[in-house]
Design a binder for these strands. Structure first.
Lengths: 232, 232
DNA sequence: AGGAATTGTTGACACGCCGCCAACAGGGCG
DNA sequence: CGCCCTGTTGGCGGCGTGTCAACAATTCCT
């Protein structure tokens, strides 16, 4: 355990060093609350002078922002090839995919969703919101409603809200163990079907037409359409 | 704006002083993230020496704990008298009640749910969990499933998860304005009905019996029963 | 190869915040 | 009035954070 097992002062390329520090920060912030992690801790973990953290990330809060961004971005690898079938089939596949991803990245995912953010910081909220947006889009293409334009804003809002249910339900499974995977699957499938088959049509239907129906009062016949779009 | 508009050093009873400081802390922590609020700020806001905060609350984190407790407790005033009718009627009334409460305490409620907690602190998580528990119980009695014992743990878990949906949906309404009240009402009513009428029966049904069905394999006939229990 | 230029990296300084504690003073009691 | 009880204060020591000039590991040039 001599001092210079690795030369005590090695020069790395900016990206490499930045990435190394960020990785350590992710580990620490994922295990302890914001205020309990000092930049000194991060520096020690990375075997680096504390000042270097400020050099690369500016302030502690900016570092935390990067950490949150990484945490919420990792799980969203990409929407795998999704089967073409009727709505029920696609919803089922989507939920299965979600549960796979969530259980695979279990630890980091739990850390991410639990890290709602140190109180409510505007920037953190922005990052989280963007992540929700991406997640909602994934669900839309997976279910085959990506090209719907009728009440798109409301539809997306409902899907975002559904994301809240998915998160809470998955936590009941992975964190509490109060539900098993099959039960979670059943719950998420049934509720998503309800939203898409009942709630959304009702919103776009007669009630919606009386409120602001301008672009089109067409029924939601597009629900059966499977989007051929892939995700970046 | 003279210094001694109020005698600069007034003696209050412990409860009064504690309450005053706590109120100021709630206001400040409700407006800015944890790390951005110093005990000095709270002290200045309360017109009090900083040391007094430590005297009453011990540490800054303990003060924050109290703040979170207040925030999540305020909205849960009590479950009003709920009408006895069929399931759909009671669900409808419950959702209406929820939306009333949420829109009434709008600001404090938003602050509370957004304040997920500074990262993930164990104690903060405990307070939040207890609040979820209480909320879930409220829903159970309101819907008339308070006395169900069959798969009680799973049922409660599903209701807790539904709380995540309710929160997210209400935020889409109050914070984003992406949904209006009627749409939120529709969504929450339909999903809760789905969970109670479809998901829960399916869980307690044949699939459940094969897993651990011991106490009773009886169907969910208790769903129609209205609980006569009131809440504290 | 040797020296200069480049730039990743360090250590220390100043400032602010937090927890603690001895001293101070408001208000009731004999 | 003077005493005691206790709410309240102010300052001390320690720690965490942001900044900056100096340092040294590589690279490039001659």
């Amino acid at each position: 355990m001599s001092v210079d097992t690795e030369s005590r002062r090695r020069r790395l390329e900016p990206d490499a060093r930045r990435g190394q520090i960020l990785a350590c920060a992710v580990r620490l912030f994922g295990a302890r609350p914001y205020a309990d992690v000092s930049t000194t801790d991060v520096a020690r973990e990375a075997g680096v002078a504390r000042g270097l953290i400020n050099h690369y990330f500016g302030t502690k809060k900016q570092l935390y922002l990067e950490v949150v961004r990484v945490m919420v971005t990792v799980p969203g690898v990409a929407v795998e090839r999704l089967p073409a079938g009727d709505l029920r089939t696609r919803v089922d596949a989507s939920v299965t995919w979600f549960l796979d991803v969530v259980s695979r990245h279990r630890d980091s995912w739990l850390a991410a969703v639990t890290a709602g953010g140190m109180g409510h910081d505007a920037d953190v909220a922005r990052v989280l919101t963007e992540a929700e947006e991406v997640a909602a889009d994934s669900v839309l293409v997976a279910v085959g409603l990506a090209d719907v334009t009728v009440r798109r804003a409301e539809l997306r809002a409902m899907i975002r809200a559904y994301g809240g249910l998915a998160t809470a339900t998955a936590r009941e499974w992975l964190q509490r163990g109060a539900l098993d995977r099959d039960q979670v699957h059943l719950l998420l499938t049934a509720t998503l079907l309800t939203i898409v088959e009942q709630v959304y049509p009702a919103v776009v239907g007669p009630a919606g037409a009386a409120q602001a129906g301008g672009a089109g009062s067409g029924r939601c016949t597009a629900i059966g359409t499977v989007s051929s779009r892939a995700q970046s």
